[in-house]
């Protein structure tokens, strides 16, 4: 019965082909360091899911942001868990993405024909850090407020266009409700959309070229 249903779907969707190309593809001999890309992807999905759940109670307004997070932590069943995973997962994701990049660098996996995979990886690292930067403001506590004040000020020291960047980031000369709102929007819509697009291309390239083998002494 199930086999019949599966076969029917397989014939139309090509499930077995999909499985063979995506998950059962041949790999060169590697080690645990090769799993960091998958770990990053897992963390991205985890951050996405816990993030979606957090938006159920979180309110991006100066009047309510702090209280709504207080409520998530103390009022809602397992709110501490969902936010805890999102909080620690964020730091872990930056770390894992960075170590993943180091691994690719050390094993010289960025070379032909994988240069584009590397460039997109740079974009992914920047977007991940952007997620960290925008997410940091959302609790709207003293630490996040001043961290963002300093962070946007640093961006504002750029020559010539510094003031423009500062105002564009803050949505005005000062940190305000506009800053919180645009950081929230960047955090849940803009950067995730960029991340997803880049991840899609990154994964396509990995499947297209396969993983690189570790270089030998004479190479």
């Amino acid at each position: 019965m199930w086999k019949k249903i599966f076969d029917w779907l397989d014939e139309r969707l090509g499930l077995n082909d999909l499985y063979n190309t995506l998950l059962d593809r041949p790999e060169p001999r590697g080690n645990w360091w090769n799993t960091l890309g998958s770990a990053s992807l897992f963390l991205f999905v985890l951050q996405g899911l816990t993030g979606i759940f957090l938006t159920i109670y979180y309110t991006p307004s100066p009047d309510h942001a702090y209280d709504s997070i207080q409520y998530i932590m103390e009022g809602v069943a397992f709110g501490w868990l969902i936010r805890g995973i999102h909080h620690w997962g964020a730091s872990l994701m930056v770390l894992v993405v960075f170590i993943h990049m180091l691994r690719v660098f050390v094993t010289a996996s960025y070379k032909y024909p994988r240069e584009l995979t590397w460039f997109i990886g740079i974009g992914l690292l920047l977007a991940t850090i952007g997620m960290g930067f925008t997410g940091y403001l959302l609790p709207w506590n003293q630490r996040s407020y001043w961290a963002t004040t300093v962070g946007t000020q640093i961006a504002g020291t750029a020559p010539l266009i510094g003031e423009f960047i500062l105002k564009a980031l803050r949505g005005g000369p000062d940190l305000s409700a506009l800053t919180l709102q645009r950081f929230f929007s960047a955090h849940i819509w803009i950067i995730p959309a960029i991340l997803m697009a880049l991840i899609g291309i990154h994964l396509y390239l990995i499947i297209k070229h396969g993983e690189s083998h570790f270089p030998k002494k004479d190479e």
Binding site: I56, V76, I85
Partner: peptide, 15 residues
């Protein structure tokens, strides 16, 4: 371990 608490988190106000 994540899914079950997540469901409780979601329906908490209804309970």
């Amino acid at each position: 371990a994540i899914g079950v608490p997540a469901v409780y988190y979601l329906i908490d106000p209804a309970l």
